[in-house]
């Protein structure tokens, strides 16, 4: 089996690392080898953050740049930062909710027209948009945005990723109110995908 490479990106504080860990745990529990990269340290809330999850008979946590299969973009600018470098076939799911970098305010700049950039991507990138933050709020809190994004990965033929597996990984990680919130968010994402992600 060739390696399956997933890149998750967003703003520090959006739960990108947690999402990557839950995704990896699910895949590992299905019997696959999985390696994840994460960076700590100067990633306070607010900076760009990128996590890679690699599945298959691979050794290192970093993929060849031309070999990503799936992007989960938690924030449009951060998703575009990866996508603008890519010109080969892959799946990409991008959350619609924008978070302005403070750089824009300081320089008196507008949030760039990422929507236009996303609609001009090369044909080979199969792009799907989802209002993940709103779905998370409907489930109870914007904090569950990462789980909604994980729910979207279920449509991308990730080896070893199943709804039941995700539920189990979420159950083993959270308890009480947070567990319910995250399960609700996951199920709400499932319902929404059929409507908002028609291929």
């Amino acid at each position: 089996m060739p390696a399956f490479n997933i890149i998750l990106t967003g703003e520090g504080g959006q739960g990108v690392v947690t999402a990557g860990t839950i995704l990896s745990q699910t895949v590992m529990d299905s019997g696959y080898n999985v390696i994840m990269s994460e960076l700590h340290g100067l990633s306070q809330r607010g900076g760009s953050i990128t996590v890679e999850v690699r599945i298959g008979e691979i050794y290192g946590p970093i993929s060849f740049k031309s070999k990503y299969n799936l992007l989960l973009g938690f924030e449009p600018i951060e998703a575009m930062r990866i996508l603008e470098q890519i010109s080969y076939p892959m799946d990409a799911v991008v959350n619609s909710e924008k978070i302005s970098p403070i750089y824009l305010g300081i320089r008196d700049l507008e949030y760039p027209d990422v929507d236009a950039m996303l609609s001009n991507l090369p044909q080979c990138i199969r792009l799907r948009r989802i209002d993940a933050s709103r779905i998370a709020r409907d489930a109870g809190s914007v904090k569950a945005t990462n789980i909604v994004m994980l729910g979207t990965a279920l449509e991308a033929s990730v080896p070893g990723l199943t709804l039941e597996g995700l539920e189990n990984a979420i159950r083993s990680r959270f308890s009480g109110k947070l567990l319910q919130l995250n399960l609700d968010a996951l199920h709400l994402a499932m319902g929404k995908m059929e409507r908002e992600l028609p291929g």
């Binding site: 809330r45 607010g46 900076g47 760009s48 760039p112």
Partner: peptide, 18 residues
């Protein structure tokens, strides 16, 4: 070799938290 495209996007360096 991968040739990096020059980004047109605003940077988002680490910042002091709210």
């Amino acid at each position: 070799p991968i040739v990096a495209v020059k980004s047109v996007l605003p940077p988002r360096p680490p910042v002091l938290c709210p």
